[in-house]
Nucleic acid binder design. Structure first.
Lengths: 209, 209
DNA sequence: GTCTATACCCGGATAGAC
DNA sequence: GTCTATCCGGGTATAGAC
C-alpha cells in the first residue's frame, strides 16, 4: 500500500525528504495522537513549512496512512523472530510501555478507524485479521505439541490475546501503574497445560510486579 | 445519579429540556464519536439552535461529561444485580453488541481521555479504578469460596477481564464477526476451578457460536 | 522544492434582538 | 429561552513568488 513509485535520477533527494517527513510524522503523531497533531507541527519538526510538506504528501490522510504502515513495519520486525504468540504479545507490551505516545496514537486511531469512512479503516481491519490469523496458527501448533491447554479454540484464544493487549494498553494509558506485561504473562500462565490440581507451584512465581 | 427531582415552578421546563439535550447528545455522540460530533448537530437533533443549546450547557465539555455520567448510570443499573464479575462482563458485552455507536464513543473517548488535559480524564480514571476494584473484590470472594482458580491474583484477573472487554469491543468494531460474549465466556471457563487433567469434558461445551 | 500568503471551512463561543 | 449574526481560532489546502 502507498507503494511510492521509485523514480531514479533527480528524484532521489525527494525520496529522502519523504522518509524524513515520515519519521517526523511518526514522532509527532506518537506524541499527540491523530487529532492533536497538525501538519504544521510535523513540518516544524522536519524544519520545513506546512506547504512544503504537502508537496510530498498530497493530503493529511495520505501522510497518516503512510505513517501507520511505517509503524507496523517496525513492530513486525521487533516480534518477527520470537517464540510463542503469548510471549510475543507480552514482549510487545513491555516494549510499548516505553512508547506512551505510540500507544495513544494506536488506541485512538484504531478506534476512530472502525468507521468505514476513516482513511485508515482498511489498514486496521486487515491488520487485525492478519494478526489474529497468525496468532491462531501459532496457538494451534502449540496445542498440537501439547504446550498449551487444548480446551479453548485457538481462535478464541487469539482474540483474547489481542484484546488483552489492546485493553491493557488503554488501562495503562489511564493509569500507568497497570502492569501490562505482568498481566499478560499471568494470562499466558493459565494457558499452559493444566497441571494436577495440587501441583500449581510453578504457576505463581515472580510475576506480581 | 442524575436523579432529576421534579421541582414545580418555573424550572420544570428547563430541566426537561436539559434531559432532552442529554438524550440527543448521547445519540449523536454515540453515532459519530467525540470528534465527529458538533454542537450544531446535537442541537438540530433536539430541534433547536446551537446557541440555544449552549444556554443549558455552558460549553461543549460540560455537555460531554454530563453525557458520560448519564451513560455510566445506565450501565451500572444494567449490571447492578448480577452474579459473578465474569458473568457481568459477559452480559455487558452481549448488550453492547447492540449498541455499536455507544461502543464506538466509549472506545474513542476513553483513549482520548488518557490525556490528563482531556475534560473526561478524571471521569475515566476513576471509572476504571472503581471497576477494577469492584471486580477484584468479587473475584477475591469467589476465590475464597473456591469457585474460581486461585493461582492468579484477583487484581491481575480483574484487569484481564476489563482488558478483554475493551479489547474485544475494539476488535468487534473493526470486524463485527468477532464474538465478544463467546470469547469472554471462554475466558471465564478457564478461570473455573481447574479439574483433573483428564476431566475437562465440562469445559468445552456450547460456547463456540 | 520550498517558501509566504491567503483563501476557506468548520466549530465553539459571544452579543444582542426578540 | 431561543434565535440570528458574528467573531475568532485552528486547521487544511492552494496560489504564486523565489
Amino acid at each position: 500500500m502507498t507503494t511510492p513509485r521509485k523514480p531514479r535520477g533527480p528524484y532521489r533527494k525527494g525520496l529522502e525528504r519523504r522518509q524524513q517527513i515520515l519519521r517526523a510524522a511518526l514522532e509527532v503523531f506518537s506524541e499527540h495522537g491523530d487529532r492533536g497533531s497538525s501538519l504544521k507541527e510535523i513540518a516544524d519538526h522536519v524544519g520545513m513549512s506546512q506547504a512544503g510538506l504537502l508537496h510530498y504528501f498530497d493530503s493529511r490522510e495520505e501522510l497518516l496512512v503512510a505513517v501507520l504502515a511505517e509503524r507496523d513495519a517496525v513492530d513486525v520486525e521487533a516480534t518477527a523472530n520470537v517464540m510463542t504468540p503469548g510471549e510475543a504479545v507480552a514482549r510487545t507490551a513491555a516494549h510499548n510501555a516505553r512508547q506512551r505516545g505510540l500507544v495513544d496514537l494506536f488506541v485512538t486511531l484504531s478506534a476512530a478507524a472502525s468507521d468505514p469512512d476513516h482513511p485508515a479503516h482498511a489498514f486496521f481491519t486487515s491488520r487485525y485479521a492478519n494478526l489474529a490469523g497468525q496468532i491462531e496458527d501459532g496457538l494451534g501448533k502449540a496445542q498440537d505439541r501439547d504446550e498449551i491447554r487444548t480446551d479453548v479454540e485457538p481462535n478464541h484464544m487469539a482474540r483474547m490475546l489481542l484484546a488483552l493487549s489492546d485493553g491493557l494498553q488503554l488501562q495503562w494509558l489511564l493509569d500507568p501503574s497497570v502492569d501490562m506485561e505482568g498481566t499478560i504473562q499471568a494470562f499466558n500462565r493459565i494457558c499452559l497445560p493444566v497441571a494436577a490440581e495440587g501441583d500449581t507451584s510453578h504457576l505463581d512465581r515472580g510475576d506480581d510486579s
